[in-house]
Each structure stands twice: as C-alpha cells, then as structure tokens.
C-alpha cells in the first residue's frame, strides 16, 4: 500500500483486506497502488478554492458552476484528462440557505477538489448527526447560524459529489482572485464553516 500511515493499527487491517483482494485474483498490488495514486494525484482543497474564487469574481462562471459543475471544473483544467469521475453539483450558500455535505453510508466526497477527507467527515458521529441535528453539529464546529437561515443537508448517497460555494466575505470587492482563493478553506467547501 502506498501511504504514510503505516504505523497506525488501521494500516494492518487495510493490508489484510488488500491481501484478500489479491489472493482472490480481483486485483494486483500494482493495480491497487495505481488506483490510489490516481485518486490522490493533485487532489487538494486548493482546486475547490480556485473554483469558488472564480465564481466570486465572475458572475457568469458562477452561473455555469451551478448549472454544470463538471464543465465548470473543466474550464479551470480540473479533472483532465479523464474527467472528475463523478457528477459534480455545486450548492451555493445564501443569507437564506446554508448548505452542509455528508455521506451517511460511507464517506463520498469530491476528493480531487477537496483533498483527502478529514477524519471527522468519516466518523460515525458526524455521518449520523449531520442529517439529524445539523444546527447543533455546526455549533460544535463554532458556526452559529442566524435563526432565519435554513439548513440544506446533502447526503451524497449515489454518484453525485457536492461542493459548497461559501458566501463571499464582505470587504473583498477589490481583492484579486488568487487572494480570494486563499480565503477558502476545506471546511468551507464542506459547509462546516463559513469563509
């Protein structure tokens, strides 16, 4: 296995699973390494942040992003040469609606645009409580939403991966796009923070 967590107990379990898969003739070690390399090659929240900054700076890009996330990613050269491998849906925060992404069944998430997922995103606690008590979960992340802001939770249970477009912070009107992108965090792209 390619990785940097070989000292963790879970690494031994993963390796046992890999050995079963290889013994069953379903894949080779090299194929498993290749899948992981392709999954994580270039994967970073910098990619999602670039898309958000472009949307903030360019109203027509914002509209295209909401209409077709894959095409909007492609405009910035993200996902080439094979495409993202999933359907990308961008959901924009407004004063009326805050968006929060979860995968209750496992940990689905747009890895190429957000980077490897944080451990809390994969935790049973987050996955079960985000759909049940999202306002309380957000408060535990330090995000107290106004009472009038509705929460829309998106459970990525099929082939769509969700990207939250945070609201643009006030006072950034003159800021260049690269500086805007630097404001956007991984948590902001999942919806457990605002920017």
């Amino acid at each position: 296995m390619t990785g940097t967590h070989s000292e963790l107990p879970v690494a031994a379990r993963v390796r046992q699973l890999e050995e079963r898969v290889i013994a069953a003739g379903l894949a080779t070690d090299a194929e498993l390494d290749d899948v992981l390399a392709r999954l994580y090659d270039g994967a970073s929240p910098v990619n999602g942040a670039r898309m958000v900054a472009r949307a903030w700076a360019d109203e027509s890009y914002f509209r295209r992003l909401l209409a077709d996330g894959n095409a909007a990613a492609g405009e910035l050269g993200l996902g080439d040469p094979y495409g993202l491998g999933y359907r990308l849906k961008a959901v924009a925060n407004t004063p009326q609606q805050h968006n929060l992404v979860v995968c209750t069944l496992c940990s689905c998430y747009p890895v190429s645009l957000l980077g490897p997922s944080p451990s809390w995103y994969k935790s049973l606690a987050y996955r079960s409580r985000a759909v049940r008590k999202p306002r309380a979960v957000l408060a535990e992340f330090g995000l107290e939403l106004p009472a009038g802001t509705e929460i829309a939770v998106w459970d990525a249970s099929a082939e769509t991966r969700y990207l939250v477009v945070p609201a643009r912070p006030a006072g950034t009107g003159e800021m260049p796009e690269d500086d805007l992108a630097a404001l956007v965090t991984q948590r902001g792209l999942i919806g457990t923070a605002v920017v």
Binding site: E150, V153, A156, S157
Partner: peptide, 22 residues
C-alpha cells in the same frame, strides 16, 4: 438517479432543515 428532498420533520418528527438524498 434522482435527488430527493425530505423535510426533517418527515424523517425525524422535528426540525426545520431539509435533507436531500440521491
């Protein structure tokens, strides 16, 4: 595949948020 939106009150008997499931 459809995105289907459920009101929290339908699923949990309380709450004002929505949950969209694919």
């Amino acid at each position: 595949v459809y995105a289907v939106r459920f009101p929290a009150a339908e699923l949990w008997g309380e709450g004002t948020h929505t949950i969209t499931v694919d």
